[in-house]
Nucleic acid binder design. Structure first.
Length: 172
DNA sequence: GCCAACGTTGGC
DNA sequence: GCCAACGTTGGC
């Protein structure tokens, strides 16, 4: 099981929005490294830290779960979308997404300052200077420490991940 | 609003 | 393939 961190601006789509809708396609990611994490590395059932960027304060606010296998981001085909990509086609999608499901809101959000102040978390990519990647892998120990400091003890009670479902787009 | 860091684009 | 220019991210 891998662990992840996903960033979102709360004014665009925050943890409260995920809690309200329950499940959200993570569209609009237009960075190849972040895409590759969703396309090739994430597995349904894996957990992600939900990070608010450009927020007051920025920090980790909740937990989400990978809700299914990757699929082409439909917004790349939509000429009316701000995420439209004229170089993408249905036969050769360029951008992929997974859905994320709401799991929890941390009882205590971890501000960036708190993350940096914790010796065991200071190495996390999200608090390195100039870190812009919107999806990051997170070590199991960092994940557990964030949950501990955030006052969330539900990691052990998560259901086992569902079996992988083949997609029409080839091996994951 | 400022600016550092980073990724992408495009000329050559 | 190099690299300068440009656009974007995101903390402060």
């Amino acid at each position: 099981m891998s662990h992840w961190l996903i960033k979102s601006e709360p004014e665009m789509f925050g943890i409260a929005d995920l809690a309200r809708v329950g499940r959200e396609p993570w569209n609009g990611v237009r960075n190849y490294q972040a895409r590759n994490f969703m396309w090739k590395d994430m597995r349904p059932g894996e957990l992600a830290l939900f990070y608010h960027s450009n927020a007051k304060p920025s920090g980790i606010v909740g937990i989400a779960r990978v809700g299914g296998p990757p699929r082409p981001d439909p917004t790349q085909f939509d000429a009316a979308s701000e995420y439209f990509d004229p170089k993408a086609s249905a036969s050769a999608p360029r951008w992929w997404l997974v859905d994320f499901e709401y799991v929890a809101t941390l009882p205590h959000m971890l501000s960036l300052a708190e993350i940096k102040a914790d010796p065991t978390l200071a190495a996390m990519a999200v608090c390195q200077r100039g870190s812009r990647l919107s999806i990051n892998p997170v070590s199991a120990s960092h994940f557990a420490r964030v949950c501990q400091l955030g006052g969330w003890d539900g990691a052990g009670s998560q259901a086992a991940p569902p079996p992988l479902v083949p997609t029409p787009y080839g091996p994951l």
